[in-house]
Nucleic acid binder design. Structure first.
Lengths: 346, 346
DNA sequence: CTGACAATTTGAAAGGTTTCAATCCGTGGC
DNA sequence: GCCACGGATTGAAACCTTTCAAATTGTCAG
C-alpha cells in the first residue's frame, strides 16, 4: 500500500471530545446532550447539536458497551437459515428484541457443530445480553459452559434431557395426534406415517402422538404403517411415494401423515405423477405449514406451529433471565393447530 | 428487584488483569500469550494458559474493538429474511466472511425503510468493517451518508442509477432473454409475461429481455402479452391464471413466463385446477429456481441466479474497499442460467 | 450586597484490551 | 569478572464513552 500499511478508511470518526472542542464545551456536557438532554440549557444544547451534526458524530458502540459492561444485543444461533421455520422464529425474536430496545445478532450454524461453537464464542466475546439457540445437539456440554459464565441462554424448538435452561418448543406429540385425529374423523382406517430418521426427536414425538390417537380411536396398531425415510427431504418423500404406489391397491393406506411439508410435497408429486388421485385415493397431511403448502398443486393440509410466538416467548425468557434476579428456568410448550385444506378434504 | 437494581448476572468475567495476577505475570505478557504466543517462553506460556483456563477467560470484544478502532464484522441488511433468495445470498457472504476471519451481522429490514435505517445506524455505531445491503430504495440518499462516513458499502441485487458504490447483481435482461429463447425454441408463438408491478426494476428488466428475444425471433410484438400483477405472490399468480383460463382457447397463449417462481406456482396451481394441462396446453417458465420449483406438481422450468456467488462477490468487494487503498467502485454482473424441467418439456 | 440554593457545567476516573518503548535477565565472548 | 547482546517481560498509554462528585454560574430573598 502506497501510504503506509494501515487499512485505508475514510476520515477518523469524530468523538465526543472533538464535538466538545467544536462546540466550546466540556465533553461531559456533550454526553449530557446525548443522554440526558433535559439537564442541559437550551442554548448550550443547541450549540452542541450543531457541532454534532456538522461533524457527523456517530456513537462508538464499543466504547459504550465497554463502559456499560454489557452490550445491547441478543444473539440467535439458528440451525438452518434457509429453512423458513427458523426465519419465522427469528422474526418473532426480533420483534420482542425491538420492543426491549435491543438489536439481534443472527447467526447460522448450518447444522455444523463447529460453526455453532464459533458463533457461541463470538457471542460470548461480544458480551451479548442473552443467547437463543436451536442447537445441533441439545445435550452438548458446551451449552453448560456458556451458562456457567452467566450468559442467559434459552433453547429454541428443542428439548434438553436434563434441565438447566429455559426452553420453548411446540408439542409435537399433540401435533401428531391432531393429524391422526383429523384423518380418523374423515374415516381413514389404513394410514401411513412417513418420516425419519428416528434420531430426530421431532419425528419420534410426532409418530408417538400419531400412535396414541390411533390407539384411542380403537384401530389396530398394524393398520398404522411406518414408512421410514432417511431424511425429511423432497427426494425422500418421492421415494416413500414409490413404495406406496408399489403396494396393491387393496392393502395400500388411504392416507399418509408426513413428518414435514417438504416430504409431503415430494409424496404428493410422486403420487399424482403415478396416477394416484389426491385426496380421493390418498389423503395427505403435512407438518409445518410452510408457505408453499397452500400453493401446492393440491393445497396441503398441514399442522401449523406458532413460529413467531415461539421466537417471541424465547426472547422474553432470555430477557427475564438477564434482568430478573428471581428468574427460574421454565419449559414453555406451544400448541400446534391443524390447517385443513384440499389434500384431505375430498 | 430485591437486591439492588443492577441487572442480575453471573460472576464478573475475568479480565486480562485477573489472569495476569493469577499467573503471577504482567498483563502485557498475558496479552502476548493471546496474540503472539511465539514471543513468550514455554514455561510462562504454560502458566498463563493454565490461569486462562481456570478463570474461564473470555475476551472482551468491545474493549478489543475500541482499541483496534474497527470491529471484526461485516453487516448484511437483507430485504426479507424469509425469502430463500436472500438467505442464500447471506450464506455466500458468510462463507467469504469466514474465510477472511470476520463474522457476519445479519439484519432484516423486512422491506421497511425505518427498520433499514435503524439497522444501518446500529451497524455504523458498531464500526463494522463494511456494510452489504439490499436496499428498499437503492437511490435513498441515506446510503451516501454512510459512505461519506467512510464505511465501505456494497449494494446487493439492486442497481443504483448514479454510481458511487460497488454493486453486484444478476443480469435480469439476460434472464428474460433466456426464458423467451427457450420458449421460442420449443415452438411457442403466443406467450404471456406474468409479473408486476413495473416499479420493480427486476420486473422491468426481465420483461425488457423477453421483448428483445421476442423481437429477435421475428415474432409480432403483440403476440407477447403482458399480464400485469400487483405483486409477485402466489395469489397474484392464481389470479393471472384465472385471466388466462378465461381467454378463448384459440387466442390463449401457449406458454407463460412468470417474473418469479412463487407467481409461477400460483399460475400452475390455478391452471391445472381449471383443467389446463401443463405443459401440453400451457408451458410455464419461472424465475429464481427456488427449492420448491423442482418439487412442484409439474417440476418447474426456471431461471436460476447464482445466489451464493452473488453474496461471495459482494463480500469480496466490500473487503477490497475496506483494505485496499487503490480500490475503485465496480458493478459486477452475474449471468443467470435456465434450468429446463417438465413444465416446458412436453 | 450577601448568602443560600438551584441549575448547569466540568473534569477525572473507570472499563478491558493492545501496543510499544523501556527494562530485565541470562548467556556467551573476551 | 565484565560487557554486550538478544530474548523475555513489564507497565504505561491510548482507544471513547459514561458517570458522578465537585466546581461554577445564575437567581433570588433578605
Amino acid at each position: 500500500m502506497a501510504h503506509g500499511d494501515l487499512p485505508h478508511r475514510g476520515v477518523r470518526n469524530a468523538s465526543v471530545k472533538d464535538v466538545a472542542a467544536a462546540a466550546g464545551v466540556s465533553l461531559g456536557t456533550v454526553s449530557n446532550v446525548l443522554n440526558r438532554p433535559e439537564r442541559v440549557s437550551a442554548a448550550t444544547r443547541e450549540k452542541v447539536e450543531k457541532a454534532l451534526a456538522e461533524l457527523g458524530f456517530v456513537r462508538n458502540e464499543s466504547a459504550r458497551q465497554l463502559r456499560a459492561g454489557q452490550s445491547r444485543t441478543l444473539g440467535y444461533v439458528m440451525l438452518d437459515a434457509t429453512n423458513p421455520f427458523f426465519t419465522d422464529v427469528a422474526s418473532g425474536i426480533e420483534l420482542a428484541a425491538e420492543e426491549a430496545g435491543l438489536s439481534l445478532f443472527l447467526c447460522n450454524s448450518d447444522n455444523r457443530p463447529s460453526r455453532e461453537r464459533t458463533h457461541l464464542d463470538h457471542l460470548q466475546q461480544q458480551r451479548v445480553q442473552g443467547i437463543l439457540i436451536t442447537p445441533v445437539d441439545p445435550d452438548d456440554g458446551f451449552l453448560d459452559e456458556i451458562a456457567a459464565h452467566g450468559t442467559p441462554l434459552v433453547i429454541v424448538d428443542r428439548i434438553r434431557t436434563q434441565e438447566g435452561f429455559c426452553s420453548v418448543a411446540v408439542d409435537d406429540v399433540l401435533g401428531g395426534r391432531l393429524a391422526i385425529e383429523h384423518l380418523v374423523d374423515r374415516g381413514h382406517t389404513r394410514v401411513a406415517f412417513v418420516g425419519g430418521p428416528d434420531s430426530l426427536g421431532q419425528v419420534r414425538d410426532r409418530l408417538e402422538g400419531a400412535r396414541q390417537a390411533w390407539a384411542e380411536a380403537g384401530l389396530p396398531p398394524d393398520a398404522l404403517v411406518h414408512l421410514p425415510t432417511t431424511a425429511l427431504t423432497v427426494a425422500e418423500g418421492r421415494s416413500a411415494g414409490e413404495r406406496l404406489a408399489g403396494m396393491p391397491a387393496r392393502r395400500r393406506p388411504t392416507a399418509a401423515f408426513c413428518a414435514n411439508d417438504i416430504t409431503a410435497l415430494g409424496l404428493l408429486q410422486q403420487s399424482t405423477g403415478s396416477g394416484i388421485r389426491v385426496p380421493e385415493e390418498l389423503a395427505i397431511v403435512g407438518y409445518d405449514d410452510i408457505e408453499f403448502a397452500a400453493a401446492a398443486a393440491v393445497p396441503l393440509t398441514s399442522v401449523r406451529q406458532p413460529r413467531q410466538e415461539l421466537g417471541r416467548a424465547a426472547a422474553e425468557l432470555v430477557l427475564d433471565e438477564a434482568t430478573n434476579a428471581q428468574h427460574t428456568h421454565r419449559q414453555v410448550t406451544f400448541t400446534p393447530d391443524l390447517i385443513a385444506r384440499a389434500s384431505t378434504l375430498g
